[in-house]
Design a binder for these strands. Structure first.
Length: 302
DNA sequence: GTAATCACCTGCAGGC
DNA sequence: TGCCTGCAGGTGATTA
């Protein structure tokens, strides 16, 4: 599942393969892939034909391709990979993927850019760039997203304060993209394990030191994942060349149900959390005393 | 204004 | 073998 490191790997690949290339034609094979483009697929394709890609940027799990000046000024193609989205640079002669949703053909007749998405949670859309709080230009839908821990202007103390201002459970706050962006279920569990904090810990009772510890752990684990090329459990996350990352082999908590904790040997526990799963070590990460439980201990393993 | 819940969607594993 | 159910989970709309 693409989280920040996986999206960054894709962004780097796009920067290598599509920068300064002129789009000749865009084909939308599935309307759901452009559902966030309010004017529909035909308008999406029409707005991109003839434009040149001038940049590949990212905030959190969103990435976008800057376009040269159009009729209405600077704009960008915004992409969210959702659960299973892939941006593939492919030779035009290669057979189409089963879940090909959008195809970009370029004026140079070289490789194509394909948006492939099995579960259709992802999508592409075109938006004008608008001034963002804190400076810079961003596509409109990204303007409310907080800076991610790999952003050079990320303010750790401000992020800790934002987490502590919330009145919720710690993991919910970590997953809230308006508090800190880029963290998904995998890296939230890994950061909590490293910081020895339970996902249900109330944010209002979190000390500054604990807040710093969990956000620093998140930064650390995502940087390590990026160096490994991202986390892949199956064929759903790949880079632009279709290759998988290797960080899943180094996960300490996520997907490790019933396996011994690498710190203390206690079996990792799986709990239900927001219609998904949460993994933690019951010894290193004790539950807070005054929170409702209701989790499950049965596990399906990884 | 803030927090919680649910729908969206497809493929796979496991049980019967 | 085939059907059914549960699970994976990020985002945005809706509800409280």
């Amino acid at each position: 599942m693409p989280e920040l490191p996986e999206v960054e790997v894709v962004r780097l690949g796009l920067a290598d393969h599509v920068l300064d290339r002129k789009i000749a034609e865009v084909e939308v094979a599935h309307p759901r892939a452009v559902r966030r483009h309010a004017e529909g697929g035909l308008d999406f394709a029409a707005r991109l034909a003839g434009r040149t890609i001038t940049g590949a940027r990212r905030r959190g799990k969103y990435l976008w391709l800057d376009l040269d000046g159009g009729a209405a000024g600077d704009d960008a193609v915004l992409a969210h990979l959702g659960m299973s989205g892939q941006m593939l640079v492919a030779d035009a002669t290669r057979p189409d993927e089963k879940h090909l949703r959008i195809r970009f053909r370029f004026a140079d007749d070289g490789s194509e850019l394909r948006f492939v998405d099995q579960r259709t949670f992802g999508g592409l859309s075109v938006h004008p760039l608008v001034p963002a709080t804190g400076g810079g230009l961003l596509p409109g839908p990204v303007a409310h997203i907080a800076r991610d821990p790999m952003d050079p202007l990320f303010d750790l103390d401000a992020a800790v304060a934002a987490v502590r201002r919330r009145r919720t459970e710690l993991k919910r706050a970590l997953l809230d993209q308006t508090v800190v962006s880029g963290i998904g279920n995998i890296y939230a569990d890994e950061a909590l394990w490293r910081a020895k904090l339970h996902s249900l810990r109330p944010t209002e009772a979190l000390t500054r030191a604990q807040g710093r510890a969990v956000l620093e752990a998140a930064t650390e684990v995502m940087a390590e994942a990026l160096r490994a090329g991202g986390t892949s459990f199956d064929a759903l996350y790949v880079n632009v060349n279709g290759a998988s990352g290797y960080f899943d082999r180094r996960l300490d908590a996520y997907g490790q149900a019933d396996r011994p904790c690498r710190r203390c040997g206690t079996p990792i526990r799986r709990d239900a959390f927001m219609n998904r799963s949460s993994f933690s070590c019951p010894r290193c990460q004790p539950r807070p005393r005054h929170r409702a439980t209701g989790g499950i201990t049965a596990s399906r393993g990884a």
